[in-house]
Computed example of a mutant assay.
Amino acid sequence: MGDHNNFEMQGKKHLKDMSETNNSVKQQQCPTRRILIVLVVVVVVVIAILAGVSVACILLLPSHPDDTPPEKCNQLPPRFGNECQHPCHCLNLTEFCNKETGHCTSGCLHGWIGDNCQTSIYISVTVEPKYQVTVPGSTKILCHANVSNYEWKEIHLDYTNDTATQRILSILPTASSPIFGNKANATIFSKNDMINISFGVRIPEDMAYCNTKIVLTCNIEFLDKTLGRKNDTGTVLVKGPPTNLSLDLEAQYITGVDATLNCTATMDPNNTMLFLVGKETTAREPTMAPTINVQTFVEQSNDCGPKVRVVYPADFTFLRSNSFLACIASDKYYGKNFTSEYKTPSITIIN
């Protein structure tokens, strides 16, 4: 009986030990599974990242994997760059520059510099003023030339009117202030790559009977003929003076009878005023006639400008106190008065 009890107690102890062993094994297996799960997740993430990088690499591959430019780079006009986006600026216009760098074996086309001939050189000529109104005498224009360090050969001043073109002045780099006859003169002011020239042009007094338009051209010529010529122009309108200025009188002025006195001239009515004056003796200063009820008429003509007629009603008070009458045209551009011939009216006074 005692042996049976001992055997039963040993069996229970064995079962208890086995249970504890199983629990210990289970506790040891649980962390191992967790580690495996984590490793699986890490592997999946790494694979996803590598897959994304592969896609990005594919997208970023150049359109020409062999690094050769597109076919259009071999067509005229020559170009270079991965997409042929840059034009070649070679001295030899048919040269295909380096497809990658743009370098030209023949050198850069004039007006371009740099290893790849992509930096432009600015060459310009500017004349000021572009338009001016003047009268016979002397007028000035300024010529500004940006030569960008190129050597220039000559600078010319050309004169053009309605009928012909004439070269009136030429300047050499060694000439400081040349004067050619009495037509024009020039003063040169040079600084670095800028040349400033002041041209003085004499306009003859007998030139502008009518309004005359002339064009003055500043023309620069370079030693390097491939640069061509650069020029700019300025227009000068030379105003003609009032012409055909006269006083028209009636044969007889009788008190109590309506009559008129007429001043006429060929002129620009926008810039010239026409009025009647009188003086008691030739030694006296003239006085203006009253302008009450004065009328002005402008008629187009085939002459140099419109024909202007200013009609004065006869004012007998003015006529009796002024024995000598004339018409005066006051011109804004000339800054002076033009006077007609003085005349003496015939007056009959009836009481």
Rank of each mutant, 00 (worst) to 15 (best):
D115H: 12
I37C: 01
S346T: 11
L169S: 10
W152H: 08
L61T: 06
P178K: 07
K343N: 09
D248V: 15
K213S: 12
P286F: 08
K26A: 14
T160R: 12
V135C: 06
V43P: 00
K191D: 14
V55I: 13
Q85S: 02
A283I: 00
L39I: 01
A186I: 04
G137W: 11
H86A: 01
R284G: 09
L223I: 07
L36D: 03
F180A: 13
I195K: 04
P70Q: 01
V147H: 14
P242E: 10
D158V: 03
T105P: 00
H89W: 03
I254D: 15
P77K: 05
G228T: 03
Q29S: 10
H89L: 05
E280D: 13
A314E: 02
V236D: 02
N149M: 04
L223C: 02
L261R: 07
L36I: 05
S346Y: 08
P77Q: 02
C84H: 02
K99I: 00
T266E: 05
G2K: 12
D3Q: 12
S198T: 15
T187S: 14
N262L: 14
A175R: 11
M1Y: 09
N219V: 02
L93F: 07
Y131V: 10
D224Y: 01
N219G: 00
E205L: 12
I47K: 00
K230H: 15
V310K: 04
S106Q: 03
P313K: 04
N116S: 14
V238H: 07
K153Y: 11
T126P: 00
C263I: 09
N22Y: 14
P70W: 00
Y209R: 11
N92K: 07
A251H: 10
I292G: 06
N322Q: 06
Y312H: 06
A283T: 12
T281V: 04
N82R: 02
G335S: 09
T344A: 13
T101I: 05
G234Q: 04
V294A: 06
S54C: 05
I168Q: 04
T68S: 07
I47S: 03
E299Q: 14
M273C: 01
I195E: 05
N293Q: 12
Y342L: 11
T348W: 00
I47Q: 01
I123M: 14
Y333E: 12
V147G: 04
N211E: 11
G137N: 10
G2W: 08
G335M: 12
L142K: 13
Q300H: 10
V238Y: 05
F180C: 06
T101C: 03
K225H: 08
Y253K: 11
I179K: 14
M267K: 11
N270I: 01
T160I: 10
T291V: 13
S54Y: 07
Y342K: 08
V25H: 11
C304T: 04
Q132P: 01
T21L: 15
C218I: 02
L245Y: 07
V201L: 10
L169Q: 10
R202C: 03
T226P: 00
N271G: 01
G11P: 00
N23S: 14
E205C: 00
E341I: 12
S340R: 03
I349G: 00
Q295K: 14
P69T: 00
K239E: 11
A259M: 10
I49F: 08
A184M: 07
K332V: 12
T101M: 04
S138G: 05
P31Y: 03
K213T: 15
E285Q: 15
T101N: 03
N22P: 01
S301I: 08
K225S: 13
F199V: 07
H103W: 03
P129D: 08
